[in-house]
Design a protein around this nucleic acid. Structure first.
Lengths: 343, 343
DNA sequence: TATTAGCACTCGAAAATGGAGAGTGCTAAT
DNA sequence: ATTAGCACTCTCCATTTTCGAGTGCTAATA
């Protein structure tokens, strides 16, 4: 048994993986032999397969059903695809067509992107909206609702809007609110949200503020406004993935739907991948989410300048058409980055 | 055969329906006989059942499996529940606990409401966000993004916020934008969105406006801002409904997921029910959506003053615990109305 | 006259049966 | 080193069998 793969066993392994990606059926030695133009007999292929199985690249569901690639095999396969950037023209055009800004809010743009990723990949599309704290403060606005309730609107540099309803201790007048927002906008202009938070704390310490009830109020309001909201996650195309044969069974289906109804865990995983650059791939258990067993995740970050805005990607079965999906995710991320670019 | 139900057959019909709601299994004569404390023998029950079947209240899946209620039966059953308002205390408390405004935007509040409806009913929760045109204009704001892109924010009386990115013909300055929004806020204050639309058109006709490029621009911008966005629909708890035995089969499941991924049709149905007051119930084919076959919908509108804001409700199998769900939907709608009430 | 017991009958669901086919591993021949 | 040949294993599918629940009808009963 050889420890490193020979050229021949590499070829065979790839052939098995590609066939399995296509058919979702265990691959037999005969199939591979035919695929290679009979240059190798089924029996020889079988020998190689036995070796590959021993090395952990293949597994047999049962003694008389061909071989199935393991996660290790996919990892090997994906690593052999590095630098893959070629995207089919029609896919590139589709992406262009369906990424447009005008007339929509950012949320809709991202949702549409997610939908697009889903329909173009035939798996699920996922897009995580920009995390707020990384953004640059732009504008804050208070709108008086009934009673002591105030609607606060926070706009950041890249057009993300966050609004929140806040209950105040005392009733505030319309003119007060205008003054408050003027003051804050002046004070906080150009800072990132995390800087803004710090600044507000500092400001609240200041002597002179303590004696100006209005300003103190303003600061407290803005503090509440900034209290974290969960990042929004758009997952589209569940119906798509249910078409995949590996989920043709009721329990699996429920499992998936449940996994994506509460997005918390997934979000944690995605945020971990925020720090990396370029396309990232999690195969099966590599994500360390047991809910995600049997699923793979291909993601990339979208950025503006040197700020990471958010993440987008595709979720599918481990048996995923990586060679097609990786360029799609990569290209979409670039495209979205370009769209959200400022001036 | 009697045309109207006797007291006895009514009782039996109800017993069958309630048993079926509980078990999802065809109900046999023996079961009912026992349920009624043996006051009637299975044979007598069978006679009544045969009558009920002839009248269209029951159906037998096959000759040797008890009876199953038809839609007509559910309709009869639901109609016999009119005026039902009693809600269990713990459910009322749960609703109270999970409907709160502070610190969230309206969208989140509604999403949480939908989630709450789902978890309390064990079916799916659905909430349609306020339709924008019915609301009263409150505030409009323009924020300059990069290049010729402008972020417009529109706030209405009840705190709904709509934002949109718009591309303008020429680059506008920050001060221009402030002047524009001041002008518009003054002009449009207190009108409903549909009045606002009319007003903008009128204003654009005016002679003096044509010679003030800035104001003309402002009006055009606001016009674009108001161009309809789809109503938002929050559907939560798909995993819940997949637990129901009637959807234990792969095809059915896919059907459901698909049905709710594109919310268009459903929205049309819901908007039809906007005009009515109080709890509305659509049983099976009554919704005229073939996608919804085998599903029922219990909805109610939530209102502020005399304006209908939106709709919320529960979607489940026709075999739904109406007696429990109707009060829940009713109470939740009132609660949400109260929450969104202005002073 | 309304109700009930009894019984033959029907049908579906689940278990048992029995190839057919695909694929393997091993051995011996090339 | 490769391959042909063959016995063996296991799943999948269709068919059959059995079992039980439930009905409808008829005749007996209160």
């Amino acid at each position: 048994m050889q420890e490193y793969l020979t050229e021949r066993s590499r070829k065979i392994l790839e052939a098995i993986i590609e066939d399995y990606i296509l058919t979702a059926e265990p691959v037999g030695s005969r199939t591979i032999s035919r695929r290679q133009g009979q240059s190798l007999s089924p029996a020889s292929v079988r020998n190689v397969m036995a070796d590959l199985e021993e090395m952990g690249f293949l597994a047999s569901p049962h003694p008389s059903a061909g071989r199935v690639p393991t996660e290790k095999a996919y990892r090997f396969y994906v690593d052999s695809l590095v630098g893959l950037r070629r995207i089919a023209r029609e896919e590139r055009e589709e992406i262009h067509k369906r990424c447009s800004l005008t007339g929509k809010d950012i949320g809709e743009v991202l949702k549409e992107t997610s939908r697009m990723l889903s329909s173009i990949s035939h798996y699920m599309g996922i897009v995580v909206a920009p995390r707020f704290t990384a953004n640059v403060f732009r504008h804050m606005e208070f709108v008086k609702l009934g009673g002591r309730r105030i609607l606060t609107i926070l706009v950041s540099q890249n057009g993300t809007v966050q609004n929140k309803i806040i209950e105040t201790d005392e009733e505030l007048q319309f003119t007060d609110l205008t003054r408050m927002s003027n003051y804050l906008n002046d004070l906080l202009k150009g800072l990132t949200i995390s800087q803004v938070k710090k600044r507000i704390l500092e400001e609240l310490q200041e002597e002179k503020i303590r004696y100006d009830a209005l300003l103190a109020n303003a600061l407290k309001l803005s503090q509440q406004t900034l209290e974290g909201t969960d990042a929004e996650v758009f997952i589209e195309g569940q119906a798509n993935i249910l078409e995949q044969p590996e989920f043709a069974d009721v329990e699996k289906m429920k499992e998936i739907i449940r996994a994506f109804e509460e997005k918390g865990q997934l979000l944690a995983l995605l945020e971990r991948s925020m720090v990396a650059e370029g396309v990232q791939i999690f195969i099966g258990s590599e994500s360390h989410l047991n809910r995600m067993s049997g699923m793979s995740l291909v993601t990339s970050t979208y950025v503006t300048g040197k700020n990471t805005l958010g993440i987008l990607g595709v979720i599918g079965p481990t048996r995923m058409g990586y060679a097609k999906i990786i360029p799609i995710v990569d290209y979409t991320a670039r495209q979205v980055s370009r769209l959200l670019e400022l001036e």
